[in-house]
Amino acid sequence: MTAFSNPYVHDNGHLLEKKTSKLIKEKNDRYLQTSEQPVIIVKTVNRVDHLTPKKLNKYKRTVFIVVGSANKKRNVQIYSSKDLHGAFTADVRGTIIRSQSNQLRSNNKKEFNRGLRFVFRACATTIDQRYQYALDKYDLSSEERAQLSHPRRLALPIALCLVIVIGGLMYFFRNNLHLKK
C-alpha cells in the first residue's frame, strides 16, 4: 500500500474530493482503535442500478455508502451488514439520504461532496450511538441530528396547513352559530 491509498474509498466514478476521502480515512482509522472495529466504506461506480455490494452478507460491522453515477444522474444508497441492520433500518437510511437529496443530486462536485460528507457523518453517528462510542468531531452536531430527525422543510408547510384548517373550522362554526340564532 502506498501512503495515498485508502482501503475505505473505492472511487471508480471519480466523484470524491480529497476532503471527503480524508474524512472517511480519519474516521475509519479511529474505528480501528475500538474493540468492535466497525467500517464505513464509500464506493462510487459508473452505473445507477445494481449498487448492492458483492458478498454483502459476508461482511461484519460494515456500512457501505454506494454512489452510482451515469449520464448526469446519481443514485446514493446505504447498505449495512446483518449485524447493523437494527441501527440502519430502511427508515434511517431513507431519512439520511432524503435529508441531503438536493446536494446529492447536484452536478456541482463541491456541493455533491458536501452532501456525501453529511451522509457519511450521519452513518458514523449512527454507528457511534449503536456501539455507545463517545461522539467526536467527525459526528453530526446536535443541531444536525435534530434536523435529520425533524426536517425543517416539512415544518413550515405543516404549520401553514394547520393554520388554514383551524381558520376554516373557526369560520365555519361562527357562520353556523349565527345562522341558528
Rank of each mutant, 00 (worst) to 15 (best):
T2Q: 03
Y8V: 11
D11T: 13
L15F: 07
L16V: 06
K25I: 10
D29Y: 09
P38R: 07
V39Y: 02
V39F: 01
V39T: 10
I41T: 12
K43N: 15
V45A: 06
N46R: 07
R47A: 14
R47E: 14
H50D: 08
T52W: 00
P53N: 08
L56S: 05
R61F: 11
T62N: 01
I65E: 01
V67D: 01
V67R: 00
A70P: 01
R74C: 08
R74Q: 07
N75V: 10
N75F: 01
V76N: 00
H85L: 14
H85Q: 11
A87I: 04
F88T: 08
T95A: 04
S99G: 09
Q100K: 13
L104N: 02
R105E: 10
G115A: 06
F118S: 03
R121P: 00
A124L: 10
T126I: 04
Q129F: 11
Q129R: 09
Q132T: 14
A134S: 07
D136C: 10
Y138P: 00
S141G: 15
E143A: 13
R145V: 12
A146Y: 08
L148N: 05
S149M: 13
R152A: 15
I158K: 03
L162V: 15
I166F: 03
G168P: 02
M170Q: 07
M170R: 05
F173Q: 07
F173D: 07
N175Q: 08
N176K: 11
H178T: 10
L179A: 08
K181H: 13
